[in-house]
Design a protein around this nucleic acid. Sequence first.
DNA 1: GAAATCGAACTAGCATACAAGATGCATTCA
DNA 2: TGAATGCATCTTGTATGCTAGTTCGATTTC
Lengths: 227, 227
Amino acid sequence: MIVPPKNPNETNREYAFRVISMNIISLDIEPGSMIGEQEIANVLGLSRTPVHEALLELSKSKIVDILPQKGCLVSMIDSDLIREARFLRITVETALVEDACEMAKEADINELEENLQLQEFYLSKDTDKFFNLDNEFHKTIYRICNKMQCYYMVNLMSIHFDRVRNLSLHSVKDLKIVSDHHAICDAIKAKDPVAARAAFQKHMARFELDWNIISREYKQYISDGSK
Amino acid sequence: MIVPPKNPNETNREYAFRVISMNIISLDIEPGSMIGEQEIANVLGLSRTPVHEALLELSKSKIVDILPQKGCLVSMIDSDLIREARFLRITVETALVEDACEMAKEADINELEENLQLQEFYLSKDTDKFFNLDNEFHKTIYRICNKMQCYYMVNLMSIHFDRVRNLSLHSVKDLKIVSDHHAICDAIKAKDPVAARAAFQKHMARFELDWNIISREYKQYISDGSK
DNA sequence: GAAATCGAACTAGCATACAAGATGCATTCA
DNA sequence: TGAATGCATCTTGTATGCTAGTTCGATTTC
């Protein structure tokens, strides 16, 4: 488990949540493994309480399953939950990119374009950095539309999806993500909701290809009943 | 504050969450009021711990705002958060009713129709019962489409919307909700996604009218900047 | 040898205790 | 009189202790 330093303005609970989430997405905590509150509390140098509260929040998205008096099971990669997370993102963000065509100011477009410059720079250099930039790109679209609370809810559930997306970045070679993002950004800039919708859906459709590769390559992490 | 009995298989945390949510929606806990963990713990006969955890979960949807070392502020009725909650529901459930046209089995249609029978029965008799049936109707649509995790996430945020919806049921006389539901159900039964989408959007559009009435009638509960 | 039983060692839920920051009022001081 | 100060008393965040339920292995029993 990777333990970054605690940020100054972060509560212990937020710190625990951040570190555990990170390690689940990066697979440094293995899908299907059991983790105990005390065990994590020891690693992070905290008491059980903030760790308990962080795990409670994670359990809301079913990324962990708290089994009372037994322990905390980190979920296997579950195609049903990924399908739900992906449905939610596609549905919500498709509507958002359309709205963004009216809502986006010049400064917003600049923010997106600056992000895309950095994406190009880091794509082949630093996978984790790129992953964060990708997340920021999507988050900016929520912000443009004044839907930050929706972002929080969708993002919490997206962790299932993120875990696979992170694997993709490390495994799948043919990455067209940045040009997809450019197409979305250009459509918003051109105030063309039809093009924005199309570009976004094309972007999200790539996942099907990745999933085919990932699901073969990481069989041991994928729960039964999926393919 | 109304305190129903604790269900047998419910943890104290779940009980606290259920009771506090209920009282926020029913306005038995007033918008803008401060509540303390100890105070609620006393009323429910619990310790602070499960109450604290319940409030943490509620704070995720911003329906309460935990101010460290000060207290817990129950949010005013906030048009921005309602707009977000409503956007999320409309966006997600519009997509769902379309999918439901393919997914719904005969048993599912029966479940919806049985629910509608009860809605007609209780509409003028028992507002709270009707409110629950309305919720169940929407929940069933998620279940038909195998999107229960999405239901949980959308529902958590919907509490802002629910608080006003509950006021509507008590204040707004001209209720066409049941016939709306019938139209949605009939479209799903006829496997007509275009009609289902239209019926659902017509249903959700009613809220604008209600909001105009509510926002005048309950000004004291509505946060500044809204109209 | 196999099955049943008991108990030690785990777990999370919850209660309680303590720490540290916010508040408000009484007191002090100019 | 008015502003500043300090303390008593709130609050939530966190740590710790206790309870009860689960697991697993050693021991007993047949």
